[in-house]
Write a protein that binds this DNA or RNA. Structure first.
Length: 336
DNA sequence: GATTCGTGGTA
DNA sequence: TTACCAAGAAT
């Protein structure tokens, strides 16, 4: 740890941060309680997901599954349907897996290590729930915190490397206000979200600005450093909207441990060469991580239902787990 | 330890 | 339009 003459004055920083958070704190639904179940659900939903995107899902999810028991018993199709459109669907499956672990154990684990063993809970989420719900002194390290700390220290390490991350984790833990871990953790993240933003950081509004090395050097925008970048892959796809008597032909992804298992999809022209295309309904682009799909949507007909395909009522599509790509295609074809 | 997993917002 | 990236975790 940096204990030299240039070590950050953590106590001053903590106080300045707490004062700022007192005025900037947003009223978000998951902040109205410290109960572990809603806190946990919100933390999972917020992984790599913006607050605005998670909000409506959070409300619907707790409406439908108000307790950990109800989540443990939920039919998988209902669970995936509620999550449909939010992305990273393994989160939903792990959430239920963990709910069953919790019910089997007779309640929530009340330690970081116990939380860490639940499905879908890594270092970040374990620290978040431990601090917010149980007041335990574990610092969170997420994208916000890494941005704040790399700027504060002008740390030029690649944040995608485990070495840099563990170094930042130690700094975060030293920075943590052990008397108020819940408030402190959320304050740093909120600072990263609202002030110490990725682009055009609002240094003039920042409570840490006086001690921020990157700011003092006029290069806050250069942090954090991220060396690796993804190369994109273009994919062309023709999806078929095959309608008959108000129903649409779909297939279901295998329930095995595959990507988006359990989700319903439209057939592609490649899958159903026997389908007879009537007209092109339109097209759209859809990006999944680094895969750029250019999708053409065709209305088509089939003589008989091919093996593995099913008719689903077009008005029922909102109630089943459907990939966003399929949803977009249905919209293009005016089915909804 | 590098990859993969979804989606939508923003400049 | 493109590139980045958002309260990460599992493999």
């Amino acid at each position: 740890m940096n204990t030299g003459p240039n070590a950050p004055q953590w106590n001053r920083l903590r106080k300045a941060l707490a004062r700022w958070y007192g005025g900037a704190k947003r009223d978000l639904p998951w902040r109205r309680t410290s109960e572990p179940y809603p806190v946990w659900v919100s933390e999972i939903m917020l992984q790599q997901t913006r607050v605005a995107a998670a909000l409506p899902y959070y409300e619907r999810f707790l409406q439908l599954f108000p307790t950990v028991e109800s989540l443990a018993e939920a039919p998988e199709q209902e669970l995936l349907a509620v999550w449909s459109g939010l992305g990273y669907y393994s989160r939903a499956r792990n959430l239920q897996k963990a709910a069953r672990q919790i019910v089997a154990a007779g309640g929530f684990p009340r330690t970081f290590e116990g939380l860490r063993e639940l499905a879908g809970i890594g270092d970040y989420t374990a620290a978040a729930v431990a601090s917010i719900s149980f007041g335990l002194p574990h610092a969170v390290l997420d994208g916000n915190v890494m941005r704040v700390l790399t700027r504060l220290l002008a740390d030029a390490g690649d944040i995608q490397s485990p070495k840099t991350r563990s170094r930042l984790a130690a700094v975060a833990q030293e920075f943590l206000d052990k008397r108020a871990p819940a408030e402190h953790n959320q304050a740093v993240m909120e600072l990263g979200a609202l002030v110490c933003a990725p682009r055009e950081p609002q240094c003039l509004l920042c409570p840490l600005a006086a001690h921020c090395v990157a700011r003092l050097e006029g290069r806050a925008g250069q942090f954090p450093v991220k060396l690796r970048k993804q190369t994109k892959v273009e994919i062309a796809l023709a999806l078929l909207v095959i309608e008959r008597e108000g129903r649409v032909l779909v297939w279901q992804r295998g329930d095995g441990e595959g990507r988006m298992a359990g989700f319903w999809e439209l057939p592609s022209l490649e899958q159903l060469p026997a389908a007879r295309v009537r007209e092109e309904a339109g097209g759209f682009r859809h990006t999944i991580t680094h895969h750029l799909h250019t999708v053409q949507v065709f209305r088509a007909v089939v003589k008989r239902v091919p093996a593995g395909y099913h008719w689903r009522d077009r008005r029922q599509m909102g109630e089943i787990p459907l990939s966003t790509m399929a949803r977009k295609a249905l919209r293009v074809a005016d089915v909804d």
